[in-house]
Design a protein around this nucleic acid. Structure first.
Lengths: 229, 229
DNA sequence: CGATTGCTTGACCCCCATCAATCCTCGTGG
DNA sequence: CCACGAGGATTGATGGGGGTCAAGCAATCG
């Protein structure tokens, strides 16, 4: 069922592109592939992942449960992304939960193999390091936005982000089906608040709601809102 | 004025501990030391740092300006910490500003030297990687807290954090002089709100305010507040 | 076609941002 | 040595954002 890593296009999008052909063949031999259906849990908080997932297709939401019982979504992972490096590197159980937003195909590479390459292939390690540095910078930005911006601003930011990462070029829609609750859990607010603001944005012709799909119409308008008029 | 890295205790606290004696001597020869007075800027947003700072003494607050004109403090850096790795690794200008909270003594190690060691010393690279992974996990937690917790909860968390990292064992105080505005800028709220909550905590005997110093009295009580009663 | 789940809107109220006024605490210079 | 000014700390008043509860509506599914 699973193909060969050497021929897999997906790896061009992540750190694995720094591996040599030999390393890829070795990885290919020990990896396992797996389908994850929409709504299924890829891994849960507290679980030892013991490896890295490489996403071949589909999208998953990565969240953490807060004390108040609400899930906060901290990442959206899609085709070409790696996930699980952090827990692997500091050798801890995952502090995050990953749930498929639509059907996914993922490859699992066991810990030892990745560690072997991290030890021996410097340019691979540097790639991983670069990715982490980017994620870290990104996380700092999110912290600032969460701390300083209103819910309305955060929704505008989130829509722009979703448009950028998940646009369907043919239809102009945001091409993942997130529930209103999911959206609320990205921006960190109550579902009702998110809904109300969405309909406000719609009224102002900033977005369109085609059935359940969301399409960004006025990027500039959203950007202005996100930055505070 | 500056000592030798090989003999510097501070490096035990950060990734530099993974360097060999020879590497340390080389670093020692090309590093520069510098005093930064309270309130002075170590580096600013948009600045190319071109190296890494190793903090020998003192504390600095690392912040990012939000669109609304308020500084959000995202890190507090103290003795033994390294800062600047991220910008170095992805070769970008800093997106953060660092200001000394009290007088500091810092060593600056130029970019090329660090990169040289990253390329050649795997265990050093892995140390850096581990640190990043930890920071990243931490950042995710902060995002969740910012998104989901009330200002009161965030203040309780912040006080516990400050107590843990900056306690003065003799006096039981939190041993850095942060202004009320600084504290507000950590939790992401207005100065007045922070002040009001501090005096509420004092009334409930959770903390004591000795002059400008803050001392945590009832950790358990604060923890309960932080988790939502 | 019930029934469960998700979406939407209304009503209510509390938290918190904002503006304003006062007090406190220094450092500085007369 | 004291007076004064400036910046920080504190408290009060006020209004709006957004969380929560509740009810009605649409959609999906066995």
């Amino acid at each position: 069922m699973s193909g060969k890593c050497e021929q897999c296009i997906v790896r061009q999008f992540n750190s694995l592109k720094a591996l040599t052909k030999e390393e890829l063949i070795r990885i290919s031999d020990c990896k396992t592939s797996r389908m994850v259906k929409k709504g299924e849990v890829l891994f849960d908080e507290g679980e030892h992942i013991n490896g890295v997932y490489c996403i071949r297709s589909g999208v998953c939401k990565v969240s953490k449960m807060s004390d108040n019982g609400r899930d906060q979504i901290v990442h959206l992972i899609k085709k070409g992304d790696l996930i699980g490096e952090r827990s692997l590197i500091n050798n801890e159980a995952s502090n995050l939960k990953a749930i498929a937003v639509n059907d996914m195909e993922v490859c699992f590479i066991p810990k030892e193999e990745i560690l072997k390459d991290l030890e021996s292939n410097t340019s691979f390690t540097m790639e991983v390091l670069k990715n982490m540095a980017m994620s870290l910078k990104n996380a700092d930005n999110v912290i600032v936005d969460m701390a300083q911006k209103t819910v309305k601003q955060r929704l505008a930011l989130t829509l722009l982000y979703l448009e950028e990462r998940f646009i369907n070029l043919e239809e102009g829609n945001i091409d993942i089906h997130l529930s209103r609750e999911d959206i609320a859990n990205i921006i960190g607010t109550a579902t009702e608040s998110a809904i109300r603001l969405l309909s406000e944005f719609k009224k102002k012709k900033l977005i369109e709601l085609k059935g359940k799909q969301i399409a960004v119409v006025d990027k500039k308008g959203l950007r202005e809102i996100a930055e505070g008029f």
